[in-house]
Simulated assay, not measured.
Amino acid sequence: MLSKKKILPPLDYLLAFEAAAKTGSFARASDELNISETAISRKVRLLEQHYNVPLFVRGNRSITLTQQGGTLLTSVERSMDILREASRDMFANHQANSINLAATNSVAALWLMPRLRKFNRSNARVKITLVSSDSDAECLANEMDLSILRGEGDWPGYESHMLFGETVFPVCSPRYLARNPKAGDLASLPDLDLIEVTSSHAEWMTWKTWLTRSDVSDAPLERAVAFNTYPLAIQAALDGLGVALGWGHLVDHLLEAGELVRPLGDRAVRTESGYYLLKNTSHKGFPEKQIVENWLIEQSAQRKRYAGRAAGV
């Protein structure tokens, strides 16, 4: 019995034969497949040698199928149609199953972006569309497959998994600290260039709430400079404009690289909130979504642990 390898000819032979048979010309088949007429003729000749039967009667400017060629064409067309339909389904399903991932501006810019390149290298077939917004409504829009938001873990209609907790501490650039050594003194912080973030989220921590939680109350913040997104505030700190509030996990990579420092050492404020991965319980799952969800949970498991009241965050 012949092996499958010997029975089946190369696919490109069959494609050349199909194109030549349907167009009635090696030249027109060449145009259809965008390869040379000589290549078409050669592939058909090799297919005839493979089966040891003539598939075409060749004229001066035309070709005509033999009986064997007509029989083969019927099967080849049917098989190729099945393969083409399967390929169309593969492309359509891949596009339909791209992942819409929404996150706050801070998480998108500082936690996700530094990790996406490595993910893309390992998961080339999974396409992530990242939506960055500080609007909870936008992040929880129906078209979002996964979302990352700050809260206490309770979103009706959503399954939540905590990625990391909320530990907040002052950060600045090394050169700012060198110019302003008083940044290492808690009581002196209100006299320095404090970088603030303005937000519609009244529950998000500000310098005023952080200092109050650190027993520095009623301190005027006349030298504070404000930005409307957290990533801009961190960039300002990197540029040496002042001292910003650093969220653990969001700025860890900048601390590890030495681009930012913690002028007060381990002093930090912990909250009951955290950053959660959310998925709508009414949405169906699919493989690409599961791949991204598993990756995010894996990144969470590898995070640095900050000592304190809730030691796991």
Rank of each mutant, 00 (worst) to 15 (best):
E272Y: 03
N93G: 03
E37Q: 03
L211Y: 09
E18S: 05
G285M: 08
A20N: 05
Y158T: 09
E77C: 13
L192G: 00
S41K: 09
E152H: 13
D191E: 15
S30T: 05
T64F: 04
A301R: 12
V261P: 13
A137G: 10
L65E: 06
R84N: 11
A310W: 15
Y158W: 15
F17E: 08
M80V: 14
M113D: 15
R42A: 05
S79L: 08
K127T: 13
E272I: 03
E77Y: 03
E152Q: 14
L65A: 11
A96C: 04
R213L: 11
W247N: 07
Y176T: 08
A92W: 04
L11W: 14
V171Q: 01
S30W: 01
S200H: 10
K5F: 10
D185M: 02
M144I: 10
P54Y: 09
R61F: 06
W295Y: 15
F26L: 04
T38G: 03
D136P: 08
L2W: 11
P263M: 08
D12R: 08
L277P: 02
E256Y: 11
Q290C: 11
L112A: 06
T206K: 02
D89H: 13
N228D: 13
T23P: 00
P181D: 03
G265Q: 12
T129D: 12
S147Y: 05
L264P: 00
S273E: 13
F91A: 15
N294C: 03
G165H: 02
A219R: 04
G151A: 06
S282E: 13
E272C: 04
C139A: 12
W111Q: 07
L277I: 00
I99C: 07
A92S: 15
S132Q: 12
F91Q: 13
L245P: 14
A301L: 14
V292F: 06
P54H: 07
S75F: 10
I291T: 15
A233I: 08
L245S: 12
R78S: 13
A226P: 12
Y13S: 03
P287N: 02
A307P: 07
D154H: 13
H94P: 00
Q290L: 10
R270N: 07
Y176C: 00
S36V: 05
R115G: 03
V269H: 01
A109C: 11
A103D: 02
A226Q: 09
L11T: 12
L110P: 11
A141F: 05
H283L: 12
T38P: 00
H283I: 10
I234Y: 00
N294R: 09
L163S: 08
V171E: 02
K279V: 10
S41W: 15
V216F: 00
T104N: 09
L254C: 04
Q95L: 09
